[in-house]
């Protein structure tokens, strides 16, 4: 709660202390002094900073986040429409990221310094360096344009736009779910590939550290098969730093989500934010920033709970 408050405060300070005048941007460069003054009053910018801060806190607590300048509807509605899409995309990607990352990292640790490990190390290093917006374009190129052009089987062709097909309203619920999943494939793959690469690099290091512990040597020495050792002894201890990473990786995940949502026209918070930035839609920019911060804080809370579940020492 304290951290949410701090996030909201930092958002407010950064946006209000930064040079640049939202009223000026709103009315445009050709506006006269009178129009500018009217805009400042309409946006509440004519009042001193502390007064604006208190007002802003008050409205946030009451759930009245103002009206979007570009869309002329309540900011809460704009965000309420977008948040589920962002949560679906980032939540699913988080799941795949950790599943895939842990598996790849463990495989690398077990095959340490063998060709497979080296190949995966180079591969994850390169994928981890890729910009999300570029990987997204490449996937669109291959699985949307390329697949259609070269007549690949239908199950290898994926839509590159939006969260639902044009005919979604006429589909049965089952078909609609399938339609949604199809639209999810490319954005989700982009985010997850990058996430898996980053996580695998980390898991590999953690697992190699654990493998050098005495109790793992004991487990191997007493004749346990490798899969059992990995599952029971290595994985369990290596999971602890990985769960810590989960909370820390959330901001980066959301950064990636913003790009991916823009490229795939996925109607989530990131696309809303970028649209608001281009339209100089100040209330939406402020609110979306604060909500992203709150999501990260909530995610960290979940990570802490998960940590307690994974670490038996914290259970009591």
């Amino acid at each position: 709660m304290g951290l949410v408050f701090a996030v909201v405060t930092v958002t407010f300070l950064l946006l209000n202390l930064a040079p640049g005048d939202p009223a000026q941007l709103w009315v445009g460069p050709g506006a006269g002094a009178a129009d500018l003054e009217a805009a400042r009053r309409a946006l509440g910018l004519d009042r001193p900073l502390p007064a604006r801060y208190v007002t802003w806190l008050g409205t946030i607590v009451r759930g009245d986040w103002g009206t979007s300048l570009a869309q002329q509807r309540p900011v809460t509605r704009v965000l309420a429409d977008a948040v589920p899409y962002t949560l679906l995309l980032s939540g699913a990607s988080l799941l795949l990221t950790y599943l895939g990352g842990i598996i790849v990292g463990l495989v690398q640790a077990v095959k340490r310094a063998r060709p497979l490990d080296t190949a995966l190390t180079v591969l994850t290093l390169f994928v981890y360096g890729m910009p999300s917006y570029w990987l997204a374009l490449i996937l669109v190129l291959v699985f949307a344009y390329g697949a259609a052009r070269f007549g690949w089987p239908a199950w290898l062709q994926f839509p590159a736009m939006g969260a639902a097909g044009l005919d979604a309203d006429f589909l049965t619920p089952g078909q609609r779910l399938l339609d949604r999943l199809e639209h999810l494939v490319l954005p989700l793959t982009t985010l997850s590939l990058l996430g898996i690469a980053g996580t695998a690099r980390y898991v590999r290091g953690a697992a190699i550290d654990v493998r050098q512990q005495d109790y793992v040597r004991t487990a191997i020495a007493k004749g346990l098969p490798t899969p059992t050792v990995v599952r029971r002894h290595v994985l369990r201890s290596a999971l602890l730093p990985v769960v810590t990473l989960l909370g820390l990786s959330l901001p980066a995940l959301f950064s990636g989500t913003v790009f991916v949502e823009v490229i795939f026209a996925w109607p989530g918070m990131g696309r809303e934010l970028v649209g608001a930035v281009s339209a100089r839609d100040y209330p939406v920019v402020m609110a979306a920033t604060a909500v992203f911060g709150a999501l990260v804080v909530l995610g960290n809370l979940l990570a802490d709970l998960l940590y307690a579940a994974v670490d038996p020492r914290l259970r009591r």
């Binding site: 996030v7 980066a252 995940l253 950064s255 990131g270 992203f292 990260v296």
Partner: peptide, 9 residues
């Protein structure tokens, strides 16, 4: 607090 905000945002 600043760290909790996604950098791109």
């Amino acid at each position: 607090a600043a760290l909790a905000l996604p950098r791109l945002v």
